[in-house]
Amino acid sequence: MKNFKSVFVLTAVLFALVSLTGMASAQEFSVGMTVQDLSNQIWAATATELEELVEADGGEFTAVDCKSNAAQQVSQIENFIASGVDVMIVHPAEKNAVEEPLKRAMEQGIKVYSWDEKLENSDMNWVIDNYELGRMIGRHAAEWINEKLGGETQVGVLTYPQIQILKQRGDGIVDAINEYAPDAEIVAKSSAINPVEGIAKTETFLQQYPDMKVIAAIGGGGAVGANEAVKAAGKLTDDFGIFAADATDQELEAMVNNEANRMSVLITGDAEKMASVIYGYIQKLLNDEEVPQNVYRELIPVTQENVDQYYNGQE
């Protein structure tokens, strides 16, 4: 009888172990993410936070950088299809280039999450009204010009027309400055999506236009570089202003230190918040739950007046 009980208990234990192993296997999943540029702080930090969330649930996460090259991104998408990922997060470098490979991905049962672009071949698009975001940046720049500079100054714009949605953002900046500070003069435009480009382009601005007092940028990467260039050139004064989007830690730290970064639009939240929102939708996609096709992100202007709500200093 004892032997029978022992065998029964052992069998039960083995069955439980097999069941638990099966449950773990069922929970395993893989997520592939292709990003425009991982030298951009907010995008890179969000990818890092996503990796932690996915791996904490037993999944595998891979993020790759296409360096804003559409052909390279298509190749990365093809690699994700070949590896059989369950979900693909795509931050398109060029909308039309990714539609066809993403169609093939969906035909193979891969869930597609588009970050920052309205795609036809996706399960969900997490998007921004980029023209209105640009206008928000431009309005804050115009208010600074009117309040600090008597309505007149030379303005530089760091845009990025290589990517359509960022071109829309740049157009919004220009239109709002022209509308709300009509006596200001936009004397220079150039492309900058990361700090290295922001430094180089701002150095050129300031050499050509030493009286420039305002720079408006489509993103935090260029804005961080612009701030460093302004300081290095000895141009940091109480009336010099840089206005942008992303509200990266570097931008917010500069605000706290009363440097040239005066306003940046926080989009959804910090990297941790963004990753949490993205992962919440990924879980819904994995569970075949219904999600909206287009979800618009919240836009929150951060200035010296409210920066303490969004920046807690370096760890």
Results as ranks from 00 to 15, higher is better:
residue 4 F to S: 11
residue 4 F to T: 10
residue 4 F to G: 09
residue 5 K to W: 01
residue 6 S to Q: 00
residue 7 V to D: 14
residue 14 L to T: 03
residue 16 A to P: 03
residue 19 S to Q: 12
residue 19 S to Y: 04
residue 24 A to V: 09
residue 24 A to I: 07
residue 25 S to F: 04
residue 28 E to K: 01
residue 36 Q to I: 13
residue 37 D to P: 02
residue 40 N to I: 12
residue 40 N to S: 14
residue 43 W to I: 05
residue 43 W to S: 09
residue 49 E to D: 15
residue 50 L to M: 13
residue 55 E to C: 06
residue 56 A to I: 01
residue 58 G to D: 06
residue 59 G to V: 01
residue 61 F to G: 02
residue 63 A to G: 09
residue 68 S to L: 06
residue 72 Q to K: 13
residue 78 E to C: 11
residue 81 I to K: 10
residue 82 A to F: 05
residue 83 S to W: 04
residue 85 V to T: 05
residue 87 V to I: 02
residue 89 I to F: 12
residue 98 V to T: 08
residue 106 M to F: 10
residue 112 V to Y: 01
residue 112 V to G: 07
residue 114 S to D: 06
residue 118 K to E: 15
residue 122 S to V: 02
residue 123 D to T: 03
residue 125 N to T: 10
residue 130 N to K: 07
residue 131 Y to T: 12
residue 131 Y to K: 05
residue 133 L to A: 15
residue 134 G to K: 06
residue 135 R to W: 04
residue 136 M to N: 10
residue 137 I to E: 14
residue 140 H to C: 09
residue 141 A to L: 15
residue 143 E to P: 13
residue 145 I to Q: 08
residue 146 N to R: 00
residue 148 K to Q: 04
residue 149 L to S: 00
residue 152 E to C: 07
residue 154 Q to H: 00
residue 155 V to G: 06
residue 157 V to K: 03
residue 158 L to S: 10
residue 159 T to H: 02
residue 161 P to F: 00
residue 162 Q to M: 07
residue 163 I to V: 15
residue 165 I to Y: 07
residue 171 D to L: 05
residue 173 I to Q: 13
residue 173 I to N: 12
residue 173 I to C: 12
residue 174 V to D: 14
residue 177 I to N: 09
residue 181 A to G: 12
residue 181 A to P: 06
residue 186 I to C: 14
residue 187 V to D: 14
residue 194 N to L: 03
residue 196 V to K: 11
residue 197 E to Q: 11
residue 198 G to Q: 10
residue 201 K to Q: 15
residue 203 E to W: 01
residue 205 F to Y: 07
residue 206 L to V: 11
residue 206 L to G: 10
residue 209 Y to S: 13
residue 211 D to V: 02
residue 212 M to S: 13
residue 214 V to K: 08
residue 214 V to G: 13
residue 217 A to F: 02
residue 219 G to K: 03
residue 220 G to I: 05
residue 221 G to I: 11
residue 221 G to M: 11
residue 229 A to T: 08
residue 232 A to D: 13
residue 234 G to V: 04
residue 238 D to E: 14
residue 238 D to H: 01
residue 239 D to S: 06
residue 240 F to I: 10
residue 240 F to D: 07
residue 241 G to C: 11
residue 244 A to I: 08
residue 244 A to H: 04
residue 245 A to G: 08
residue 247 A to C: 05
residue 252 L to C: 12
residue 255 M to H: 00
residue 255 M to I: 03
residue 259 E to D: 14
residue 260 A to H: 00
residue 262 R to Q: 09
residue 265 V to S: 10
residue 270 D to R: 01
residue 272 E to S: 09
residue 273 K to D: 13
residue 275 A to R: 04
residue 279 Y to V: 05
residue 285 L to A: 09
residue 287 N to L: 12
residue 289 E to G: 15
residue 289 E to T: 13
residue 299 L to N: 02
residue 303 T to G: 06
residue 304 Q to L: 04
residue 307 V to P: 04
residue 309 Q to E: 01
residue 314 Q to M: 03
